[in-house]
């Protein structure tokens, strides 16, 4: 049980960090671009919200198979398969939680007054510089919300993890899968403890997010 909890926390932490690094430029691009492809990219980003996790997991499994280019490249570089590994879980989690990272940041970036970025530009800031020095500080609640939601969503995922990672103790068996296994083996005590833990954790996270956003409505930055 402890192994499952540690694995889940590790997966959530790695996913959140990588997701912020990847999603931030994407959110900034979506918030500012006039490109006609924007709705398409937005739709792809939001797809995990509506797609059954099993469908996403199925396609990922195919992509990660040693016969597919991605899976083959991974085998060449690391010597092991991407599917049914921790790295595979990270890849799947990043895709599965992508909307939870992109959307709060995109909304926050869009709500930064263009007047502020224009003022920064006339004061000598390049595009990257004004993002770092003006947009990011004024959107820090959005970034924090994205991080918290990504972390929590990764902890709670089940379908994708089961499809891509299977149920290997200590390697891919996360808390939600441990609950599933416990119920299947009629180990009610473990199922109760883990479920209650996830419930309380999720509640705390959501209260935190709502409190964060309510505080943000009253004052800037």
């Amino acid at each position: 049980m402890t192994a499952a909890v540690l694995l889940t926390l590790q997966l959530a932490a790695v996913t959140t960090v990588l997701l912020l690094i990847l999603a931030m430029p994407l959110a900034w691009w979506l918030a500012t671009t006039r490109n006609r492809l924007r709705p398409v990219i937005e739709a792809i980003t939001a797809l995990p919200l509506v797609l059954p996790p099993t469908v996403l997991g199925f396609y990922l499994l195919i992509l990660m198979s040693p016969d597919a280019p991605l899976g083959a490249a991974w085998v060449r570089v690391t010597g092991s398969t991407l599917a049914f590994s921790f790295a595979g879980l990270v890849v799947a989690s990043i895709l599965y939680s992508l909307p939870f990272a992109v959307q709060p940041m995109q909304t926050a970036f869009q709500s930064v007054d263009r007047q502020m970025t224009e003022a920064a530009a006339t004061l000598g800031a390049t595009r990257a510089d004004l993002f770092r020095s003006v947009v990011l500080p004024l959107s820090r609640r959005g970034v924090l919300t994205a991080a918290v939601l990504s972390f929590a969503h990764t902890i709670g995922e089940f379908g994708v993890v089961l499809m891509v990672g299977g149920n290997i103790p200590g390697r891919t068996r996360t808390v939600s899968i441990e609950v599933f296994t416990a119920v299947e083996t009629l180990d009610w005590a473990v199922a109760h403890r883990l479920s209650l833990g996830l419930l309380v954790f999720s509640m705390i996270v959501l209260i935190g997010v709502y409190a964060l956003n309510r505080g943000g409505a009253g004052r800037l930055g």
């Binding site: 007047q115 502020m116 224009e118 920064a120 006339t122 004061l123 390049t126 003006v134 930055g221």
Partner: peptide
């Protein structure tokens, strides 16, 4: 030339001070 390279100082109608 982007605004950052023109070396113009602009004072807008509203002060547009950075709140952070």
């Amino acid at each position: 030339l982007p605004p950052s390279l023109r070396r113009v100082g602009v004072v807008f109608q509203d002060a547009r001070l950075f709140p952070h």
